[in-house]
Design a protein around this nucleic acid. Structure first.
Lengths: 336, 336
DNA sequence: GTGAAAGCGCTAACAC
DNA sequence: GTGTTAGCGCTTTCAC
């Protein structure tokens, strides 16, 4: 309840509300002197315009929504960081929502946002299978930019990384370092992001004349608390000498499992993973990572959204691909 | 621009807007049948109430603001996670702002929020010296809850951890493991949070009859990119056999510095730090941490804010202290 | 260059 | 139980 409003300013200045409003918006119809007087009074009384009144009037909110699976995640928190910085530059506000990988929650957020609360949406999809129709519905009414976790069947503007190349090159790196049985820890398999990562792995194996061996692909179950035991038995049963993890959350348990099983990384098993751990360097052993430019993805995604605001947004249907970085460290060092 | 509004619904149903509005809010004055009809039509037409209109009417926004130094930080992202979950339960929206430790940016956010855009604020203060007057001004108009990074001179509701005990006990642990020269990496010194951590360190030294030695307290400079070199020379010059770091960001460089200087953790130097690293266990060596209940702090802070909404908020001036956890690992193992 | 009036969508008094 | 009216604060025709 900003108690001082335009009416009050107008009263104090012996002007009409209309004039004050125009002066505040620096309209050319207002004399320099009046503008001065208004601005001064506004400052003196600590006037803050009521955002709801002007949103109601303009049908725009100066607010964007960010929907992510989790905030407490090295990748997403960095991306949000980038988004927030861009938004701040433009005096926009950022609403944040986490889906915890549930498409039901995701959908309910999207529906709620159709009310006009935001001018646009930045979203990284939940891994649970999505309702494509929903997105079509939403994107008819609201500009929406997808980042990192995207789906081919859902049209729209997308910012991703070179997922296919990343896993392809990662496998290549493992092969060069002598791996013969390369396991893959699969995740995000309902999303294009996950499919591309998987395909890069498969194609790289093929190009190296490795036999197809489905058992070397570990499929994550529903429950997150089963990850560790799943990985442990995977390692024990399949005896891979290299593991490529498609998400950071599956790579960490490998460390624990190897310790438990008595395997040495990298002597017995080489490990590489998508990760935005700031201190992958300090792990024991340091982790070879596929490092995604998370901050830049956030900046890019937000940047595109603002571009869309300034044009007719539905003209856009592009996909921008940023490059990830393969950072070689001890976990893949040496040959066998 | 939710094109379907109450007027449209009213028109379709041959009712007045007021009746529709009442039906939607489940008013007791409306007949069961009418309610049914309205609800059905609303669903059929995908009606979403315009949040700005109702905010304007009610002078409340169903939105809270979270102001933190950084989002991409293990502690803050977890806290935000907790906040978001609580907000979601209550159908509230969460705006996010990062100050990058600048009190100027912090102040400008606070001022902008006075417009009524949010019903309350959760804030973790920037380390840069704060303008107390500002907060008094803001908290007159808006409920505000401080968490973790708090300031004694600023009145208000606060959620913190047992900072003094944490450092006191950490020093105790180092002493028990044979440390004779315990260095302290100081940060947040303008805030009570930082002062309490420092005091816990000082008192623990005194209680163990250690001589006062100001040079063993490393004061962080302005520039973050100087952290590493600062720490390196600190270690070389002061030759501490134990280091207590008041923030995670100062502990990580210790690893690099020790490697560079040829010191072994924990054989030559024991290290302990405040940290919410998920995988402190996997560092080389694993890091003994003071683990703050970040998620719970977020939940608690948001919970209190909602309590304040339901009562007369200015009655509150309490401080809630949650306990941190000292998790002993290899970086402080053994005696010399 | 300034003012009066209407309206964005919703809701609460006040009718009946 | 339902309708009429006014107004939240801001902006924008349309007057003058």
């Amino acid at each position: 309840m900003g108690e001082v409003n335009i009416k009050k300013l107008a009263y104090e200045l012996n002007l009409s509300a209309a004039t004050v409003s125009r002066a505040l918006r620096d309209s050319h119809e207002i004399s320099a002197e009046t503008k001065m007087r208004v601005l001064e009074m506004a400052k003196r009384l600590n006037y803050e315009p009521n955002p709801f009144a002007s949103s109601l009037r303009h049908q725009k909110s100066k607010t964007i929504a960010v929907i992510v699976p989790e905030i407490a995640n090295n990748f997403f928190s960095l991306a949000i960081n980038g988004i927030e910085e861009v938004a701040r530059e433009r005096d926009y506000h950022v609403l944040i929502y986490q889906t915890h990988e549930s498409s039901k929650i995701e959908t309910s957020f999207l529906m709620r946002l159709l009310s006009g609360r935001v001018d646009g949406i930045l979203i990284s999809l939940a891994s649970e299978a999505v309702d494509k129709e929903n997105f079509k519905e939403v994107s008819k009414k609201l500009p929406i930019v997808f980042f990192d976790r995207v789906h081919d069947d859902i049209e729209g503007v997308k910012i991703t990384t070179d997922d296919y190349d990343s896993t392809y090159n990662a496998v290549q790196h493992l092969v060069e370092n002598g791996c013969k049985r390369i396991g893959y820890l699969r995740a995000l398999d309902t999303l294009s992001t996950g499919k591309k990562r998987m395909q890069g792995y498969l194609d790289a194996l093929k190009d190296n004349n490795f036999p197809e061996e489905p058992a070397l692909v570990m499929i994550e179950g529903e429950k997150k608390d089963q990850r560790y035991s799943l990985i442990k038995s995977f390692i024990e049963e399949q005896k891979p000498d290299g593991i490529l993890s498609s998400i950071e959350e599956l790579a960490m348990p490998c460390y624990y499992a190897c310790k438990e099983v008595g395997l040495n990384i990298p002597k017995d098993l080489k490990l590489i993973s998508f990760s935005n751990l700031t201190h992958a360097e300090l792990l024991n052993p340091s982790l070879t990572t596929i490092n995604q430019p998370a901050f830049e993805i956030g900046v890019e995604a937000a940047g595109i959204l603002f571009k869309i605001f300034n044009k007719r947004w539905y003209e856009f249907n592009e996909t921008i691909v940023l490059k990830s970085n393969l950072i070689k460290r001890e976990s893949t060092r040496g040959n066998f």
